[in-house]
Every structure is written in C-alpha cells, then in structure tokens.
Computed example of a mutant assay.
Amino acid sequence: MSVVVVGSLNMDLVVRVGRHPRPGETILGSDYETHCGGKGANQAVAAARTLGKPAPAKAGATPPQPLVRMVGRVGQDEFGQRLRNSLKREQINVHAVLPIPTPTGVAFIAVNEKGENTIIVSPGANYRLRPENLTPAEFDGAKVVVLQLEIPLDTVRRAAELGRSAGARVILNAAPAQKLPEKLLEQVDLLVVNESEALSLTGVAPASPEKALELARQLSQKVARVVITLGEQGAVWAEPAASGYQPALRVESVDNTGAGDAFVGALAAALYEGHSLVEAVRWGVVAGALATTRVGAQSALPCRTEVLEGVARLS
C-alpha cells in the first residue's frame, strides 16, 4: 500500500527582499537560491518524511517498497535530473516521473522580512502530463491519492477517477485557486484549501476561524470532508457527522514557503496510517508550522519525530 502523489515538480528560485515591490517598481534582493519544489513534489516529500523510512526487510526477504509514489513530468535538463534525484534520496518511487524534451517547471519566489511570499510559476513539463499518460498501473496498491492544480485540470480529474477506482482515498488540494468542475468534486473524498482558495470557491473570505468553519460546512455539501487552512491561526475541518477548529502550533516563522504542502503531506500520511480526520488535521497543523521555521520548501519540511513531538505539544 502507498501514498500516490500526482502533480507538479518545480525548481524554486528564491530571493529574499525587504518588502515586495509595487507594480512597475524595481527593488534589490539577496543572492538567489535554488530549492527543489513544486506542490506535488513538496507534498510527496512531506508525506514520506512524516511516514518515516519503511521497516527494513529480514534477511533473504524482498526489500521494502517505498511508501510514497510520485507521478509527474520533468524536463531533460539539469533541473529535472536534480528533482528526480532529490525524490530518490527521500526514498520516493520516481518510476512515473518521466523526463521529456521540454523545460522543467520553475517557480520564482520572493520572500519578505515577515516570511510572506509571492510566487510566479512557469509550469513547463508539468503541463505536458496529460490524462492519456495515466493508467491504472500508477495507482495499483494506492491507499491515499494526493492531487493539486499545478497540472492540467483534465489530468487531475483523470487521476481522481483512477484513484477512486483503485479504492484509494482521494485528497484534492485545490491550489492554485480555480473553478472546479462538479465531475471532479464527485471523485474527491477530502478537499483542502487555504483562505484565498476558500474565497475563490465560495465568494466569501474566511475572516475568522468561526467564518472559516461556516464555509467548511458549506463546502462539505459538495465534498464530504473539507479542511480550510488558516496559516498562523491553524485550520478548520468539516465532515458529515462533525466539524471543528484546530489552533496552530506556536513557532518563530521565517519563511512560509511550502507550509501548505507540509500540511497536506502530513495530513495524507496520518490518513494513510488510519488516523481520524481530526487527528490528521493536528498532524498537518504541526507540520505546516514547523516548515515555516526554516528557509525553502522541501528543505524545510519536518521529519516524523518532529511532527509527533509537535502533536504531543498540542495535546
């Protein structure tokens, strides 16, 4: 059994600035850094670190299979090779991360003194992952399937259908925000959105945890289970029989790049292990908070021990 992540792989080009520029304005920033990223790859790494390494095989037994499998596309370039090698080091199955003759996706990220970021994504190879490229083989043995919206929407829908057919729980992180077709939502078991994405889907801003909880219940009329993340305020959740609010773990934040992906990956890992949605949200809140205490996306994602210790602090 495995967590299957279908989504984007990007090389993040990060520059730190005192403040974000206004339209038409040029400002000076730090030396830029390169970090492996992409919402799909970030969430795969977050899930793998939260799950920890597979138990070693006994002498003579078949080596254990990775617990996380990534499906995506990269370019036949240096960035693409670095992204695949980075996932391999995390013990993630990359057999379905195929290099193709087009540029690897790139994200241009500016981070201000408060740790807030602005991001521009050039999708590159990510947008060459088409529905016809996906087959049931990629979803064989999937227990949880994780999707985002940095690949074509038709591909997301096909992945959701194949995940559901495989008997997996399908998680859709509806980011970046866009209109979602009903036929996609019908295949989704759990919808995860942040404040801006909740606004895009409902037309109402979740200005407080109370309002966010109201919107989560509203969205749960379309998808049975909904989570709205609220940054430093935590997250709310709703499912058919209950709903609730989970405050955040208090930390000293330096960079919130990848925090949402940390949340989704840890959430998926908890559900893979059989935890309730309530407990999975706690894992996600902790992982998201810890990811803000370090610079970068994948480089900032916490390991299993850190997540479990943070969850204990919430108790």
Rank of each mutant, 00 (worst) to 15 (best):
V3M: 02
N10Q: 05
D12G: 03
L13F: 11
R16N: 13
G18H: 13
H20A: 11
R22C: 05
G24K: 05
E25V: 06
T26Y: 13
I27L: 12
L28N: 12
G29K: 07
G29S: 08
Y32S: 11
Y32N: 05
G37S: 09
G40W: 02
T50Y: 10
A57W: 09
A57C: 10
A59I: 04
A59C: 05
A61W: 14
P63G: 07
P63E: 11
P64C: 10
Q65I: 01
R69G: 01
G72D: 06
G75H: 02
Q76D: 15
G80S: 08
L83Y: 05
L83T: 00
N85E: 15
S86G: 08
S86Q: 09
L87R: 00
L87I: 00
K88F: 00
R89F: 02
L98D: 12
T102I: 12
P103W: 08
F108S: 11
F108M: 13
F108I: 06
E113I: 01
K114T: 10
T118S: 14
T118I: 15
I120E: 10
S122T: 14
S122Q: 15
G124D: 08
G124Q: 03
G124N: 09
A125F: 05
A125Q: 09
R128T: 14
R130V: 04
E132G: 02
T135G: 13
K143N: 11
V145W: 02
E150T: 01
D154I: 00
E161D: 08
L162H: 03
G163E: 05
R164K: 15
S165K: 10
A166D: 10
G167T: 01
A168M: 07
V170M: 11
I171K: 01
L172Y: 05
A175R: 07
Q187K: 14
D189V: 02
L190W: 04
L190G: 04
L191N: 09
N194C: 04
E197C: 01
T202Y: 02
A205T: 13
P206A: 05
A207N: 14
S208Y: 08
K211V: 14
A212L: 11
L215I: 02
R217Y: 01
R217Q: 15
Q221K: 14
A224F: 04
A224S: 15
Q233W: 12
A235R: 02
A235Y: 09
V236F: 13
A238P: 10
A241M: 10
A241N: 12
G244E: 15
Y245M: 09
P247Y: 08
V251I: 12
E252H: 11
T257A: 06
G258V: 02
F263C: 05
A266N: 07
A269Y: 07
A269C: 07
A270S: 14
L271P: 03
E273V: 00
G274N: 14
G274Q: 13
S276F: 03
L277F: 11
E279I: 03
E279S: 11
A280P: 06
W283P: 05
V285L: 10
V286Q: 11
A287G: 08
A291E: 08
T293N: 14
R294L: 13
R294V: 03
A297T: 01
A297Q: 02
A297W: 00
Q298A: 03
Q298N: 10
Q298E: 15
S299I: 01
E306Y: 06
S315G: 09
